[in-house]
């Protein structure tokens, strides 16, 4: 599965929305339910799904889909 699809899968699970589709420009306000608690759950879900670790700082700041993808590619995910 492509990185985009895998990421979308994590989002769908965390936000309990099977029709959710991601675009690179999306940020937290674009997705219903993306509050501070959901954000933590999301970051954790991404770490588990891709086998990567964010830095403490990145955990708090990573809120744009394109940025997230770049980060994952940088960590060797494809």
């Amino acid at each position: 599965m492509e990185l985009h699809d895998r990421l979308e899968e994590v989002f769908r699970q965390v936000f309990d929305n099977e029709t959710l589709t991601l675009t690179n420009e999306m940020t937290a306000p674009d997705i219903e339910g993306w509050d501070s608690v959901a954000h933590i759950n999301l970051m954790f879900g991404i770490e588990q799904a891709f086998g990567v670790r964010f830095k403490g700082n990145e955990l708090a700041e990573m809120k744009n889909i394109g940025e997230l993808k770049q980060f994952l590619i940088g960590k060797g995910a494809s």
């Binding site: 501070s36 608690v37 933590i40 759950n41 954790f44 588990q48 964010f54 830095k55 403490g56 955990l59 708090a60």
Partner: peptide, 14 residues
Amino acid sequence: PRYWNVSKQAVALE
């Protein structure tokens, strides 16, 4: 410690 610092999770989500 990252999750403690970000959102005060004393027990990791894991």
